[in-house]
Nucleic acid binder design. Structure first.
Length: 903
RNA sequence: GGGCCGGUAGCUCAGCCUGGAAGAGCGCUCGGUUUGCACCCGAGAGGUCCCGGGUUCAAAUCCCGGCCGGUCCA
């Protein structure tokens, strides 16, 4: 888009005497007080030289954050606490990647007012797209960072502030709070786009380091063009870690962020400390380093080597090792935050992202030649950041256990891969690119490990290895989800009606009601109010009857289109006006019990297993409830029992269950994001269901009013349905009795089959098994004597063409048994040629085997010819054959055919 | 949610491409040898070839469907 220069003309610049210049290398426009600054002072146009720029004194990450927040609080901004790094309130994002994410989509779309306006926040954020560059750039790339931000939301009728004030704040903060000389601060003109929005922006850079981005969100992107949105949003992002780096002037950002943790981690890994000179030279050069370009990386190493007067290889090795150490620090911090916010590592969803980070950290450790584990490092991160982020300490036990488990899994995967690879190598094959990709993609073995195991037999690993892998995964775009497959025709018809009054919310115990008929299309009916609960939130819809025009119609179900409840009848009704409805109450009550039981169960599971337990799916029907929860390992019998007992005691405590509508922001502030167990409602007001002192969730279902009404609870099945997800199935209320009866009836049935009286089933089965063993032994005896008989017959049989032929019938119909017997006979009688007929109803099967002395015979061919002569088909190998013959074939007939074929 | 790999003895796996009597190593049991600890020799037990269907005279093997595990990517 062609951006008008007017977008960047700010009153403050004129007032202060800023000039607009254009860089000679980077060709971008920027605003400065100092025309001597020939470039916009940003990577990759200049070296880092911020260490030469004065500041008001070194700040830790924690201090820089505090300073920022206090500055804006003093200027009328309200402090908003940070959210989790897992974006639970977003359906389209796994991780919180910026502070603005906190306010999307509800605030930015204008649906919900912000918690304060203007506001200030410091939001821990995680971005994984640059994970491979972490470390090498000495801190420009991080997976986890804090984005400090002040936001202002300007509505059509409420103006807060816009560009001018935002730029003033930035200038004032950097000069007064950080002590940066104003003539070294550069505002580079830029354009920002993301999440469907766009707008002009300034990148604020000092001495090569970009310290902040000031975005003025004012467009939305529509098919590649821009449309003004009614809101004007000030979206800023100040890098807290960069402020710490800038003020501490340490060789790398990691030293500024982690302090002495860098050296402690170095000791754990067992690395030498590089000379200060090397790191300082690296920092100067890192400003122009483009980690995605092999040429730029090469030039970077060469320049550092030249400046410190060292051997290039030595420098490359030292800096690569440093980069690995730094990325281990970065990844262990990201992992601590991800796990503490409740991610369970798995092979899909956000769980996979945690696994990705853990495995990359482990790989870096391996490449450093260290056998150190992640656990100790993660524990150190919890220690370092736990004061500012208490969730780290609260969930430390789970975090460390999950880390340990991930490590074990990775080791197992590598072990498996190593065995496969060694086998492959023993077949003296060389390892090419194709194999490298296969080992990584299918078995999780990174290419450098393949190279290590395969030694010389491996091709070079291409630098774009991971994009080669990624290319294999490019899949056709998935279809847009659409609202659960409701036909467009129905959708547009239904949406013309006013919202249905939801009587099932006003009184979940309402069984019958009167309403006015608003519309009919085929068998679909819309009323002005209804007690029929429409399918949603994992709760199945009600069924029942509607009396329309004097005739009763069965209601098969109901569903929601927007705010309109659509009833699905068995046939099209006639007439209209007053309608009387009645729901199937027995069914509904069972569903309500299961639904409330689900909430009680989730509360119990979180208490027994930990706060990382989240609902991963649920269904409540008349028969049973089903709840999928995130958890990193299978539940023990003991844990299941504890959870069940806990739910039953909640039932006995007769806790109050209440549902009420709350302002979204208010509910979040009061209860946290564990509200959103079943997804995030896109509305200003949400319905909050609370079991007093036990569980609070945003939920649109119907519930009993007291846990006592659940009436009883029994977990009937537990299974692991996916890595990191455990499924619980359970029944409540009178269904407990149904399930108990069904179990009893099953036992009775078994008892009857066993002929055992009540309570004697196990004894009876034991003795039956004993007699079964006895019978098996007897059958073996018979088999043996049958085989002996065949052998006797063989010995007395006439020798024809070097073999003795016996044709006989088997009392058993099992191919396998006959083969077993034939094997024994032919092993013992080398000259044997034995044919066994097994007679079935439709056809007879023939099995023929020969002993060793009959080696020159081709049994398969023999059988093929004989079978053909007898009107069947057959074949086989040199020593064994089988055929299918007409059912009535006689022994003598078979003998003659075989003899015929023999000559 | 999708791609790729896999499921055979207690364990680790071969056999599958090219259909024809289910194998190896380790472990286990017994016997011998030895009496220095991953010793050697011999014998033996141990199988729903993941499940279901199809093709075929014949399926661990080929085809279809399902279940389970691993792994990479959204």
């Amino acid at each position: 888009m062609k951006v008008s220069p007017l977008e960047y003309e700010v009153e403050f610049f004129k007032e202060k005497g800023f000039t607009r210049l254009r860089g000679s290398i980077c060709q971008e426009h920027y605003w400065t007080l100092n025309p001597e600054l020939r470039e916009p002072q940003d990577v990759p146009c200049v070296d880092y030289w911020f260490d030469k720029i004065p500041s008001s004194g070194p700040l830790t990450v924690s201090e820089a954050r505090r300073k920022f927040i206090d500055f804006f609080v003093r200027r009328g901004h309200a402090e908003v606490p940070p959210r989790p790094v897992v974006a639970r309130w977003r359906e389209d994002l796994y991780l919180t990647i910026a502070s603005i994410v906190v306010f999307q989509p509800h605030v930015t779309s204008g649906l919900v007012p912000p918690p304060a306006n203007p506001l200030v926040i410091s939001q821990p954020s995680i971005r994984l797209e640059d994970i491979d560059n972490v470390g090498l750039t000495l801190g420009r790339h991080l997976t986890i960072f804090e984005m400090a931000a002040h936001h202002a939301f300007n509505y059509e009728n409420t103006y807060v502030y816009w560009k001018d004030e935002t730029v003033r704040y930035a200038f004032e903060f950097f000069t007064k709070e950080l002590g940066i000389p104003g003539d070294l601060i550069v505002f580079k003109e830029s354009w920002w786009e993301g999440g469907g929005n766009a707008g002009p922006s300034f990148e604020v850079a000092v001495g090569g380091l970009e310290l902040a981005t000031l975005v003025f969100m004012m467009y939305k992107t529509v098919n590649g063009s821009y449309e003004r949105i009614p809101m004007l949003i000030v979206d800023t992002g100040y890098g807290v870690e960069r402020m710490a780096w800038f003020t501490q002037k340490t060789p790398t950002a990691f030293h500024a962020i982690y302090g002495d943790l860098v050296e402690r981690a170095r000791d754990i890994v067992g690395m030498e400390r590089p000379g200060e000179e090397l790191l300082l030279a690296a920092r100067r050069a890192a400003g122009k380093l483009d980690p995605d370009s092999p040429e730029s990386v090469k030039a970077y190493f060469e320049r550092v080597a030249r400046e410190v007067g060292e051997d290039l290889e030595k420098v490359r090795r030292a800096l690569t090792a440093e980069a690995r150490l730094y990325s281990v620090l970065d990844h262990t911090k990201a992992l601590a935050f991800m796990l503490a916010d409740g991610i369970v590592p798995s092979n899909s969803g956000e769980g996979y992202l945690a696994r990705l980070v853990a495995r990359r950290a482990l790989r870096q450790l391996r490449l450093l030649g260290s056998s150190a584990g992640l656990k100790e490092l993660v524990a150190m991160q919890i220690d370092l950041w736990g004061r500012d982020f208490p969730q780290l300490r609260e969930n430390a036990a789970y975090v460390l256990e999950a880390v340990e488990l991930e490590e074990a899994r990775f080791r197992e995967a590598l072990e498996r891969g190593r065995r496969l690879l060694e086998r492959e190598l023993s077949r003296a094959r060389s390892i090419g690119l194709e194999e490298l990709v296969k080992y990584y993609d299918s078995y999780g073995v990174p290419p450098e490990l393949v190279a290590e195991v395969a030694k010389g037999a491996v091709v070079e690993v291409p630098h774009n290895f991971y994009s080669i892998v990624a290319a294999r995964h490019r899949s056709p775009r998935s279809l847009g989800k659409g609202e659960a497959g409701i036909e467009e025709r129905i959708r547009s018809w239904a949406s013309q009606f006013p919202p249905t009054r939801k009587l099932y919310y006003e009184d979940p115990y309402l069984r019958s009601f009167s309403a006015r008929l608003l519309g009919v299309m085929d068998n679909l009916v819309v009323l002005d109010s209804t007690a029929f609960y429409p399918t949603g939130g994992g709760q199945v819809s009600d069924v029942g009857v509607l009396r329309i025009g004097g005739k009763e119609h069965r209601v098969k179900g109901a569903f929601l289109v927007g705010d309109v409840v659509v009833h699905e009848l068995e046939e099209k009704p006639v007439g209209g006006g007053e309608v009387h409805g009645e729901i199937d109450w027995e069914r509904r009550y069972k569903i309500m019990r299961h639904h409330t039981a689900t909430h009680a169960l989730l509360g119990a599971a979180r208490r027994v297993l930990g706060a990382h337990v989240w609902q991963a799916g649920a269904e409540k029907t008349e028969e049973k409830g089903r709840l999928d929860i995130t958890h990193h390992k299978p539940l023990s019998r003991e844990e299941v029992r504890k959870i069940e007992e806990l739910v039953n005691s909640v039932i006995n405590q007769r806790r109050k269950v209440s549902a009420r509508l709350m302002e979204k922001g208010e509910a979040e502030a009061k209860y946290g994001f564990s509200l959103y167990q079943g997804g995030v409602p896109m509305s200003k007001v949400i319905r909050v269901v609370e079991i007093d002192g036990w569980d609070v969730e945003a939920c649109g279902g119907t519930h009993v009013s007291n846990t006592g009404e659940i009436g009883g609870f029994r977990i009937v099945n537990v299974e692991r349905i996916q890595d990191g997800v455990v499924r619980l199935e359970y029944v409540a209320g009178t269904r407990v009795s149904d399930v108990a009866r069904a179990a009893e009836e099953r036992l009775e049935e078994i008892g009857e089959m066993l002929g055992a009286s009540r309570g004697q089933e196990a004894e009876r089965l034991k003795s039956l098994l004993a007699s079964f063993e006895e019978l098996k032994a007897v059958a073996d005896q018979y088999r043996k004597s049958w085989a002996e008989g065949v052998k006797r017959e063989l010995r007395s049989a006439e020798k024809v063409g070097g073999v003795r032929l016996v044709v006989t019938e088997s009392p058993e119909q099992s191919r396998e048994r006959v083969q077993e017997a034939l094997k024994e006979i032919t092993d013992e009688e080398p000259e044997a040629l034995v044919a066994v007929i097994m007679r079935g109803r439709e056809a007879a099967a023939l099995e023929v085997a020969a002993g060793r002395a009959a080696a020159e015979l081709n049994v398969g061919e023999l059988v093929r010819r004989a079978a053909h002569a007898l009107g069947g088909r057959g074949g086989g190998s040199r020593s064994y054959g089988s055929a299918r013959l007409p059912a009535a074939v006689g022994i003598e007939e078979v003998r003659r055919a075989l003899l015929e074929a023999l000559r």
